[in-house]
Design a protein around this nucleic acid. Structure first.
Length: 272
DNA sequence: AATCTCCTCAACCGCTCCGTA
DNA sequence: GTACGGAGCGGTTGAGGAGAT
């Protein structure tokens, strides 16, 4: 395992009473933990910490392993697919981060939680509404999620190649792979029904998610067909949305999705 | 160049749940 | 039944970095 390029290498604080170390992990501590787990497996974290000679609590060792050192942990940019998944699953389960993380391979509950707090809640704050309010839920559902879906279906541009360093060996998700995922998704027209249970949701793939999504809010409705429901509608996306700056030009990336001021103004005007 | 402000994310804390004696 | 320890979860904090002034 490559321990170079570690973000935290400053001296950790040492508790005077227990002599337990706190704060950022050093490269040496990481190596000890990884080597110990490689030889003895994980679990029994308190005794693991003692036996490995780490002056850390078991909780700290567990957290370090699960959130950083685990071989399959992915870090780096949250892809549109993952963003969509997070939005969708959070709308179902709320702040059940570990449960949400189970459906995002390689992502940790901590990372998803951080993403939600730093990105999503920030925009709720900008909107001056609660993240759990109907206004914000609708904004996610009727603006951000369709746009994410559109981007997923369109595939990623070269400038949007996301890095997902795993185990300090960068993994690159190139456009063809993303396009493959996008192509595996059902067409809008083919989405007619799907089951979704609170207790046993099957959201194991993007296609499941889109099934749920389109069924729930009606794809035809979203894309300007004549179907009418009580939900807000946005139509003529090729014109209005472009005028709001919503549609990305070549090379523009994700943050346009979160450039909400214009888009939400537009959204709420058109909802009247 | 220096300072300030904001953002990100690793890590900690407190609590709950669960298994075991 | 209950006391205890281990494990896991969600909320929160703070250091460090990036960008703005």
């Amino acid at each position: 395992m490559d321990f170079s390029n570690r973000p935290c290498n400053s001296s950790p604080h040492i508790d005077e009473d227990s002599e337990l170390r706190r704060g950022p992990w050093t490269v040496e501590e990481d190596m000890i933990l990884v080597n110990y787990i490689a030889n003895h497996g994980e679990g029994r974290w308190n005794s693991l910490a003692r036996c490995a000679g780490l002056k850390r609590t078991g909780k700290s060792c567990r957290l370090r392993w699960l959130n950083y050192l685990r071989p399959d942990v992915r870090r780096g940019n949250i892809t549109p697919e993952e963003q969509l998944m997070i939005l969708e699953l959070h709308s179902r389960w709320g702040n059940r981060w570990s449960k949400i993380a189970q459906h995002l391979p390689g992502r940790t509950d901590n990372e998803i939680k951080n993403y939600w707090r730093t990105r999503v809640q920030k925009h709720a704050k900008q909107l001056q509404c609660d993240v759990n309010s109907k206004q914000f839920q609708d904004t996610m559902r009727y603006i951000w999620m369709p746009r994410l879906l559109e981007r997923i279906r369109a595939g990623h541009r070269p400038s949007e190649v996301s890095t997902a360093p795993s185990n300090n060996n960068p993994v690159f998700y190139h456009a063809p792979e993303i396009t493959q995922i996008s192509n595996s998704m059902p067409s809008y027209e083919s989405c007619t029904s799907v089951s979704s249970s609170d207790e046993s949701p099957h959201v194991s793939a993007i296609s499941d998610l889109t099934d749920y999504f389109f069924n729930d809010i009606s794809a035809a409705h979203l894309y300007g067909a004549e179907t009418q429901t009580t939900s807000p509608v946005y139509v003529n996306q090729g014109s209005d949305l472009e005028h709001t700056g919503w549609v990305c030009g070549p090379g523009e990336i994700t943050d346009n999705l979160w450039n909400i001021e214009d888009n939400n103004t537009w959204f709420w005007q058109h909802q009247q």
